[in-house]
Simulated assay, not measured.
Amino acid sequence: MKPPAFEYAAPLTIDEAVKLLASSSGGAKVISGGQSLMPMLAFRLAAPDLLVDLKRLSGLNQITISDDGIHLGARVRWCDIEADNRLAKCHPLLAKAIEHVAHYQVRNRGTVGGSLAHADPSAEMPGIAVTCDAVLTIVGSAGTRTEVATNFFTGPLQTTLGSDEILTDVLLPAWSAERRWAFLEFARRKGDFAMAGVALFYDLDGAGRVTNTHIGAIGVADCPIRLHAVETVLNGKVLDDQAIAAAAKTVHETVEPPSDIHAPSAYRRSLLATLLERGLRQSATRGS
């Protein structure tokens, strides 16, 4: 299989990259690691007139930890996250999720920005971004804007990115040292896209009750979602067997995954409920 013919450019600055995108009138694609785009080109699922490669842009491959949280440049690779020992403490949920991304070869090339812009509903990074209230920085012809991750994804492989815009930075808000968390997903084979996955974290108040609950799911909707109804059920409760059972029951009552060739809706819903239950039990052992 061969990709369709296209022009290629590797600009030196963000401004130059934005101008190239704007001049193409929607016919250009941004390429970073290429782990999603190149297969799409090979299968003729994408046919851009121009590829704008971000590999020469400086400053987009940095991981910065500050008081406001963790900044991930759009060109940060999965292997960069794996190799940064600070993240096991500063954001263990992110570090754990990246262990599930595809295979070693893909993690050496795939990037944070590429995954978010591609917006596969089963991918780990979009799920982490939605669960953690990530703030995305986007640069385009009209200037720089920010957007929360929950508003960024609009459907399968669809986002609010304009044809002349580039995602440059992801901010994950600061992480509490005592926070409880878990990430679980299920795939038919290791490295495959998740049939369902759950990312969760919460804090405990002085009486040991759950507060600030964040629960996200991948693989069960057209884009990564927050399970707000489940969060409401858990907030203010002690995380005992009764609370966990109520959370799983709420998944069955509120989540309606699509059916496809891999699994019917009822299977995915039951799988998600099981992953949530296991994740909550796993999280309860952290920090104790």
Rank of each mutant, 00 (worst) to 15 (best):
D192H: 08
E16T: 10
N151L: 11
A243L: 12
R278P: 00
K190C: 10
G113C: 04
R188L: 08
Q158R: 15
S122E: 01
N61G: 11
D68I: 04
D205P: 00
N235H: 13
N61T: 02
T213R: 09
S24K: 03
R107A: 01
E165D: 08
D164Q: 06
A229Q: 15
I261K: 11
L272P: 03
H252Q: 12
Y267V: 07
S288Q: 14
E124N: 08
G26E: 06
A9R: 09
A246H: 04
S66A: 14
A207L: 06
H118G: 01
V148E: 14
F153R: 02
L234A: 12
T285R: 15
H214P: 02
T232D: 14
V135G: 02
P3D: 08
R286G: 07
C79G: 00
A102I: 00
S66R: 09
A22T: 00
I166H: 09
A46W: 02
D49H: 12
T254E: 10
G162T: 02
L136A: 10
I218K: 03
R180K: 15
L239M: 09
D192P: 01
S259I: 02
N85A: 15
V170Q: 06
A117C: 10
P257F: 04
L161K: 06
F193L: 13
M38Q: 11
P48H: 08
L37W: 03
E99A: 06
T274L: 15
G113F: 04
Q35Y: 03
P39Q: 12
A243M: 12
P264Q: 08
Y202G: 04
Q282E: 13
F183I: 07
V18P: 00
T150D: 15
G155R: 07
K96N: 12
S32W: 06
H103L: 08
A42W: 15
H262T: 00
L275F: 07
P156R: 15
F152G: 08
I70V: 13
G33M: 03
R56W: 06
L227K: 03
L21E: 01
T232I: 13
E185M: 14
Y8A: 09
